[in-house]
């Protein structure tokens, strides 16, 4: 296996996940953490939770966007290298949920960054989160292949 194939394979098979709590109620966050623990064990899909945006392929966001953290969310998204996939976990991340009418809430995170996968639930169950992340990994694969084609065209 050449170096290029090796990088391609490990990229598709082992996406790294970054989690950001964007004014959520902690419900979805502790379910995402529960996904990493022995009962649900997200790591069997090669997914590891990392703390650095520059190492991450998938951004998992919980909670709604408010006026202060929209800059932070944008910043984290911009720091991630391409190709990247965004997963919105919970109804708050999708639409604003129960907080939609509160004065400091702008709505779902798709007002700030593009979202690829929405995981429903209040809070989303670990099974649903793992399903969403698995879908995200497939989208990541597609994006990676498209990027490769674009590079070939540019040559």
């Amino acid at each position: 296996m050449g170096l290029k194939e090796f990088i391609e394979k490990s990229f598709k098979k082992s996406p790294w996940v970054l989690h950001y709590n964007c004014s959520s109620c902690n419900g979805c966050d502790i379910e995402i953490l529960a996904c990493m623990t022995p009962l649900y064990d997200m790591e069997r899909f090669g997914m590891v939770n990392v703390g650095n945006p520059k190492h991450a392929d998938i951004l998992v966001v919980t909670g709604t966007v408010n006026t202060k953290n929209k800059e932070v969310l944008k910043n984290i998204y911009d720091q991630m290298p391409d190709p990247k996939v965004v997963v919105a976990v919970g109804v708050c991340a999708a639409t604003g949920g129960v907080f939609r009418e509160a004065y400091n809430v702008l709505g779902g995170i798709d007002k700030v960054i593009p979202v690829d996968v929405y995981v429903p639930g209040c809070p989303a169950k670990p099974e649903a989160i793992i399903d969403g992340l698995y879908k995200a990994a497939e989208i990541l694969k597609e994006k990676y292949e498209k990027m490769g084609k674009a590079e070939e065209v540019l040559k």
Binding site: S23, C25, G27, I30, N66, K68, N69, F99, A102, N104
Partner: peptide, 28 residues
């Protein structure tokens, strides 16, 4: 960073609906 303004929601939700809102102050 997490401020949503839940205390003000009492103006928009009646006191029975507010139980569901205060449940979402913290998930733990």
């Amino acid at each position: 960073f997490v401020h949503r303004g839940l205390e003000m929601l009492v103006k928009k939700k009646d006191f029975n609906q507010m139980v569901y809102v205060v449940d979402h102050i913290c998930g733990i």
